Amino acid sequence: MPSRLRGVLSAALIALACFLVPFGALAAWAAYGLADTGRYVATLAPLASDPAVRNAVAETVGAGIMDEVDDRLDVRPMRGSMRPFVHDAVRSFTRTEAYRTAWDAGNRAVHDAVLRALRDERERAVTVDLAPVTAQVKRKLADEHMPLAERIPVEHTEVAVVPAVDLDRLRKGFRVLEVAGFWLPPVAVVLAVAGIAVAGCRRHAVVATALGAALGGALLALAVAVCRRLTVADVPEPSRRTAAGAVYDALTATLREASWLLVALGLAVALGAWLTGRPGPLGRRHGEPGEPAAPASAPASGRPV
């Protein structure tokens, strides 16, 4: 194969491999990181102690309980005085071991429900039941002798997590991520190896591949940061944006680590390949054999003058 054609083919293969690197990492993280229920629950478990997350949970659960009380009981004249007690009781509950257990159990239930919805064809919304939390709050209010606490109904209050109208679009995206997460990483490796193999100067090809992988990792880290900014900005209540940011950071921690690992590994390989090609102290390149020494000249014959 002509050297010019080999160079063009090598550059195309390496460029395509480096282009697939960030997409492969993203797809693998989404399809095999977020889709693992145990890993998901373990990732979110520390957030049970995060103050911003606790406040957001307290506000959501407290509002749900007050809405349920309004629907079931005629306590509208006392609503203003009950609300602080309810919210204080919920906030107090979020500092207990029972809350941390409920947090893990709730996250596991939500994750299992979302996965089942993504993998079957039923068109129904994914919901989570607030009844266990309501029962805990009711017990605490009753212990504090709050008026009408015993009359708070503990109903199966389902909060929608994923609306039914969004399921079809999410299913298609999830299936694409599963396929991409399985195939893109090995395809990128095969393309990179092929590009290096057909290159006229393999050392240059290794440097280019490593720098391209590092660039892909940097772009992935930038995309994660931009998406975080957009995600937090979409939260309507300013008080809950900190909680949304904490959840986002916890879920994307592995992806951020993978992106910076790509950057570090790519730069290290590129630097190593470049250093092995630098000229040595005698003008040779490192690793190249030296020139054979010139034979010593024979002594001149004859008598000295």
Rank of each mutant, 00 (worst) to 15 (best):
83 R>N: 09
93 F>Y: 15
110 V>G: 05
112 D>S: 11
116 R>Y: 05
110 V>W: 00
117 A>W: 03
127 T>Q: 09
107 N>V: 03
105 A>R: 14
95 R>E: 14
89 A>I: 01
97 E>Q: 13
111 H>G: 04
128 V>I: 11
121 E>R: 12
123 E>A: 15
112 D>N: 13
109 A>M: 08
129 D>F: 04
125 A>K: 09
97 E>C: 08
94 T>Q: 03
103 W>R: 02
106 G>Q: 06
125 A>P: 08
98 A>M: 07
82 M>A: 14
88 D>H: 10
96 T>K: 01
88 D>K: 10
110 V>S: 09
110 V>M: 10
90 V>H: 01
96 T>H: 01
112 D>K: 11
104 D>V: 08
122 R>H: 13
112 D>M: 05
85 F>V: 15
91 R>F: 06
118 L>M: 09
128 V>W: 04
88 D>I: 07
122 R>V: 11
88 D>S: 14
124 R>H: 06
118 L>Q: 03
85 F>T: 14
85 F>M: 15
84 P>L: 08
101 T>I: 08
90 V>W: 02
98 A>G: 08
109 A>E: 12
114 V>R: 02
94 T>I: 05
90 V>E: 00
92 S>I: 02
116 R>I: 08
91 R>P: 04
103 W>F: 15
124 R>C: 00
113 A>D: 13
122 R>K: 14
124 R>M: 05
101 T>G: 14
95 R>Y: 11
80 G>E: 11
110 V>I: 15
105 A>K: 12
128 V>Y: 13
129 D>Q: 04
91 R>M: 13
97 E>D: 15
85 F>C: 06
107 N>K: 04
122 R>G: 06
124 R>A: 11
89 A>F: 04
112 D>F: 00
82 M>D: 01
89 A>N: 04
126 V>R: 03
111 H>R: 11
85 F>I: 13
87 H>K: 11
119 R>C: 00
104 D>R: 15
116 R>V: 12
84 P>T: 13
123 E>G: 12
88 D>L: 12
116 R>M: 09
98 A>S: 14
85 F>A: 15
98 A>Q: 14
128 V>L: 10
113 A>K: 07
100 R>L: 06
82 M>C: 10
124 R>E: 13
100 R>P: 02
92 S>R: 14
109 A>L: 07
121 E>V: 05
81 S>P: 00
101 T>R: 12
86 V>I: 15
119 R>G: 05
96 T>D: 01
118 L>W: 06
129 D>A: 00
125 A>T: 12
112 D>G: 01
